[in-house]
Simulated scan of single mutants.
Amino acid sequence: MKHRVVRLGQVVDINPSTKATDSADELVAFLAMADISEEGRVASVQQRPLAEVQKGYTAFQAGDVLLAKITPCFENGKAAFVEHLPTRVGFGSTEFHVLRPTKEIDPKFLFHLVWNANFRRLGASRMTGSAGQKRVPVAFLADYEFSLPPLHEQRHIATILDKVDGLRRKRQEAIRLADEFLRAAYLDLAERHPAAVPVETLLAGVPNAARTGPFGSQLLVSEFTESGIPVLGIDNVVSNAFTWAAPRFISAEKYAVLERYTVRPGDVMVTIMGTTGRVAIAPDDLPTCISTKHLCTLTLDQKKMLPTYLWACLRWDPEVKAQTRREAKGAIMEGWNMGIVKGLLVNAPPMHVQLKFEEIASRIKRMSSAQVLAAKGTDELMTSLSAKYLEPTA
């Protein structure tokens, strides 16, 4: 049999009716949006009395594919093939589309079809509704055209994609475990060497050792250029490791005005707006850059505090977390400020302890870097295979 071009609505029942049991007291499976991971899996299953959920929630059954329809959950990959359920019928968020495969399409092939990045990009461009409440319409799903292979080939494709995805997950888990090991190493050292001092006492004796900004009219969006001096923001720090993200630049002339906001290699950068408390260290090969008002940048006296140790302390120390929670409750506006960061009491043990931690961190970073590189290769393979097997017809 040859491939044939079909619309999704021809081979899938979209948001079908699902008959529940007659017993209102019976427990049924329930999936909130948080129970579906962005990795395309059912992360957890709740159970609730049927009477609580049979009205006002979305019904589904084992064998269905759930697809988040609201932004940003759809774009972020919240979808799952519900292979098994502890009860005959399940209920979930009203922000799910339910896709029930007919006999013409393999359910795992269907999952990969709607979970791949190209499908999500196209779906996001067809969303309707107001900002922040945009949703993927049923019409987009029903009219989506793709090349449908014979069933045996669909199953073969799904098996290949499942194996690549499994490998990707293993590599991501290795990265997570390395990070967890480093967290445990920090907490052990901090517990055995308690010594709390304010961040401001650890700063280098240079002008603007702690800085945020530029603010307001100091730097306008219209002043960004296509090349020049990079401008660092939340997206460079949000993963708790320095990464290059969407490029933003200012001219050399504008940099001369904003030079006080320069980020130096070894500086510790903390997000203070949006996603607060993320932290990264400026790499040794960082070119001349400035930071935005969304970051608090710290230049440390490295005879008192090593950047790697402060990075760990700000990420994982329970006393620091308790302080930031208290500050957040008392804040007039969401977010932190430079005063909050400078006033944090952080663990500052003797230098030999910090050096020991830095040695451990260096070893783990080397191992993690290999895994990150391998994971990137697996991601690229997944993207390539998805493009090969799951491309839309137009």
Rank of each mutant, 00 (worst) to 15 (best):
L161Q: 04
V197F: 05
A174W: 02
P149G: 01
D179N: 09
F140A: 03
A158R: 01
V82G: 01
G123M: 00
V138Q: 14
V98G: 05
G216V: 06
G92W: 01
P107I: 10
V164I: 10
V82M: 05
W115K: 13
R171H: 14
T87P: 01
A204M: 11
F119K: 00
L187R: 04
V114M: 00
E173L: 09
G92I: 03
G92C: 12
G92V: 04
D179M: 04
L141W: 02
A131F: 04
P86E: 08
R169E: 15
A209R: 03
E95L: 07
K170N: 11
F146T: 01
G213K: 03
A139Q: 09
F181P: 04
L99Q: 06
T94K: 10
A184K: 13
P137C: 08
A124K: 12
F181V: 12
G129C: 07
I160V: 15
A80M: 11
G166F: 07
L161A: 02
P150S: 11
R192S: 08
R135N: 12
R126I: 02
I157V: 15
H152P: 09
A178T: 09
R88D: 15
F96A: 08
D179E: 14
A185K: 13
G132P: 00
Y144F: 15
D165E: 15
R168C: 11
N116K: 06
L151D: 00
L141S: 03
W115H: 15
L182C: 11
D143G: 11
L99W: 03
R192D: 04
Q172L: 08
Q154E: 11
V89A: 02
L177D: 09
E180V: 04
G132L: 01
G166R: 09
P137F: 04
E83G: 06
H152F: 07
I157D: 00
A80Y: 06
I157E: 03
V197N: 02
R121S: 09
S147W: 07
A178M: 06
F81W: 15
V136N: 00
K78Y: 06
P198Q: 05
S93R: 02
I160A: 10
L182M: 14
A142Q: 11
T201E: 12
V206I: 15
E191D: 14
G205F: 05
L151Y: 07
D143L: 12
G216T: 06
L85W: 06
E83D: 14
T159Y: 10
P137T: 08
V199H: 09
Q133P: 04
I160L: 15
T212C: 12
V89L: 04
I157K: 01
V206A: 11
V89T: 10
D165A: 15
R183D: 08
Q154D: 12
K163F: 05
A79C: 13
F119A: 01
A139L: 10
L141G: 00
H112D: 07
G213D: 03
G132A: 00
